[in-house]
């Protein structure tokens, strides 16, 4: 435990001097005439755990999709390990992709394969490791996420929270040095949330992995985060409305941020703000 807090402190201390793993510049993403991300800028340093917060539908998953090179932005630049992935072809992206893992919000497990096969898939497809070794790796990865013994079930036979954890195990199959997680603890009980959080901390603090985590869970965010950004919604859609280390975020007086962190229904975010629009909409403008 002492090792833990020591290294996290030093992670904060020299964050400016460390290698930049991800650099996002003026990122803009539109769907039709809706601008979902509007000029996003940030950097993620090696060993950091970057937390992305924001209301539902504000574009967090969309942002992650951009970072993994899954879709091309309307404008802007995304550098992973220094490579601008927005200008790279699928073929050029593959070597980079083997270096990072991605946990999708839905888990995105292959339904036709068992849990064990899902986890072994990246290993069998991307390396020449012997199947006997792959088998042992699968068992170790399942142990990491607290699912030892589940390898022969199909994704349809397990709960949502378990799927999330299997997806995390799969994302970690190739021992990535960069992990993207989209709401890794959604649907998990508090104990499992703590297990997954501890795993993320161990991987980043002790092994030096870099993580980008989308989460709504504020306890979890403050437990694992070394840097946080909050995306706005409504009139602030697509902008970063607050950012900083967990300490800075805790002290930040921004009312929207406070409302989000404290989980209050009433405040500057949505609902009240759009009440006029609501009546206009409800009663018809004519």
């Amino acid at each position: 435990m002492t090792l833990d807090s020591d290294s996290s402190k030093s992670a904060l201390h020299d964050r400016e001097s460390k290698d930049v793993v991800i650099e996002v510049k003026d990122l803009v993403v539109r769907f039709g005439d809706r601008t979902i991300l509007d000029g996003i800028n940030f950097k993620v340093h090696k060993g950091d755990t970057m937390i992305i917060m924001g209301g539902s539908g504000c574009g967090k998953s969309t942002l992650l999709r951009q970072l993994i090179g899954s879709t091309v932005p309307d404008s802007g630049e995304i550098r992973l390990y220094g490579f601008d992935i927005t200008r790279m072809s699928e073929k050029e992206l593959d070597p980079l992709r083997k270096r990072f893992g991605m946990l999708f919000q839905s888990g995105a497990l292959l339904q036709s394969l068992t849990i064990g096969e899902n986890i072994s898939l990246p290993l069998l497809e991307n390396s020449k490791v012997d199947p006997a070794i792959v088998d042992l790796i699968v068992k170790m990865k399942l142990e990491l996420v607290g699912l030892t013994g589940f390898e022969n079930l199909k994704p349809a036979e397990i709960s949502g929270g378990m799927k999330k954890r299997v997806a995390l195990a799969r994302a970690l199959a190739l021992d990535p040095d960069l992990l993207f997680s989209d709401e890794p603890t959604a649907g998990l009980d508090p104990v499992m949330t703590a297990v997954v959080d501890k795993l993320t901390c161990d991987l980043t603090r002790k092994l030096g992995m870099t993580a980008v985590v989308v989460t709504h869970d504020m306890t979890s965010a403050f437990r694992i985060g070394t840097y946080m950004i909050m995306l706005g919604s409504g009139p602030h859609q697509g902008k970063i409305i607050a950012e900083g280390t967990p300490e800075e975020i805790k002290k930040n007086p921004d009312p929207m941020l406070r409302q989000f962190i404290n989980g209050e229904a009433d405040g500057p975010i949505p609902l009240k703000l759009s009440q006029d629009d609501y009546f206009k909409h409800l009663l018809g403008s004519g």
Binding site: E90, F104, S106, A108, L121, P122
Partner: peptide
């Protein structure tokens, strides 16, 4: 098609498969 809408295809591509 089901694999596509449930992000399985995207997940494959991200795993460099």
């Amino acid at each position: 098609g089901t694999m596509r809408v449930s992000e399985e295809i995207e997940a494959l591509r991200v795993m460099a498969i």
